[in-house]
Amino acid sequence: MINAVIDIVVESQDSGIRIDKYIAENQEELTRSYIQKLIQDGMVLVNDKAVKANYKVAPEDSILINLPPPVDLQINPEDIPLDIIYEDKDIIVVNKEKGVVVHPAAGHYSGTLVNGLLYHCKDELSGINGVFRPGIVHRIDMNTTGVLVVCKNDKAHQSIAEQLKVHSITRKYNALVYGAFKAEQGTVDAPIGRHPIDRKKMAINQKGKRAVTNYMVLENLSNKYAHIECSLQTGRTHQIRVHMASIGHPLLGDDIYGPSKDSFHLEGQALHARVLGFIHPTTKEYVEFEAPLPDYFKLLLEKLRK
């Protein structure tokens, strides 16, 4: 039984890339390990023939990805309060709290946003992203707060995923960073990939994927800090955190890319996903949602002003 089908035609500039890597780069909602399993199970066809994971794609190759239906969930629904901004039959938009993990993973099999969504939505969540990430089409870090869209069906999932792929979604973040700015706005255009030594970290890496962050200074604070708005043209892992640290303005509370000592004793980076806008999967109209600054952020902002 097939749950969904994804059809891709390879363009000339992508010739010679391993097929598992190529699919991972073009279908960001699918993990590379999941893609490799699909290939191994014969669920990925190139020109109607099964291939191995090391197959190198060629121009005009027709790639058909057959996604099996999700197996019975082993993740338990939990009655966790959700801050719901908007909900309809296709999507649910939530304001994620600080410290909440988006989906189950090693060390976090309960208390995640997905656990709460399973309780609230019952079986109305897309299955494209597998057992542990039903409905999840994009993520924000555990200690990042703010707006997140979750898909209730595969049609909505594929629509939002395609918009993420072509970078047409509006994403604006508020951040508190070290150091005052001289210019009122700027752009960081630097590729991001895995850190060459610490594989748990991301870094500016010329072999990584292109990443572009536009920033605007909302307020310089005491000549030591700044409140900024970051708009994402791309969406790479830890993008804002890596980019701002790379130009000498790491986020307050960032225990990975910031100073080792945090005099403010924060629980993770001061980063809030404030605005999310996209074309609705069914109405085809542009919709935009906003999550107000969380209390900890507003209190810290007032403290820095003084």
Rank of each mutant, 00 (worst) to 15 (best):
I2T: 10
I2C: 00
N3K: 10
A4H: 13
E11R: 11
E11V: 09
S15Y: 13
G16M: 10
D20P: 08
Q27Y: 09
T31E: 06
T31R: 09
Y34V: 10
I35Y: 01
I39H: 00
D41I: 08
L45A: 01
V46I: 08
D48L: 06
N54G: 10
N54W: 15
P68N: 03
L73I: 15
Q74E: 14
D79L: 12
P81Y: 01
D83L: 10
D83K: 11
D88H: 12
D90K: 01
I91C: 00
N95T: 09
E97N: 12
E97M: 14
E97C: 12
V102P: 00
H103L: 07
S110F: 13
Y119C: 06
D123S: 11
D123H: 12
R133F: 01
P134M: 05
H138V: 06
V149T: 04
N153H: 13
S159D: 05
S159H: 06
Q163Y: 07
H167F: 15
Y173E: 00
A175I: 12
A175G: 11
L176K: 03
L176C: 04
L176N: 01
G186F: 11
P191S: 04
R194N: 03
K200F: 14
M202L: 10
I204V: 15
K207A: 14
G208F: 10
G208D: 03
R210Q: 12
A226R: 00
I228K: 03
E229K: 08
M244R: 02
G248C: 10
P250G: 03
L251C: 09
D254R: 02
S263G: 07
F264V: 04
F264G: 00
L266C: 08
I279N: 05
P281M: 09
K284F: 15
V287Q: 10
F289S: 02
E290H: 07
A291G: 04
L293P: 00
D295S: 13
Y296W: 13
K303Q: 15
K303M: 14
K306W: 15
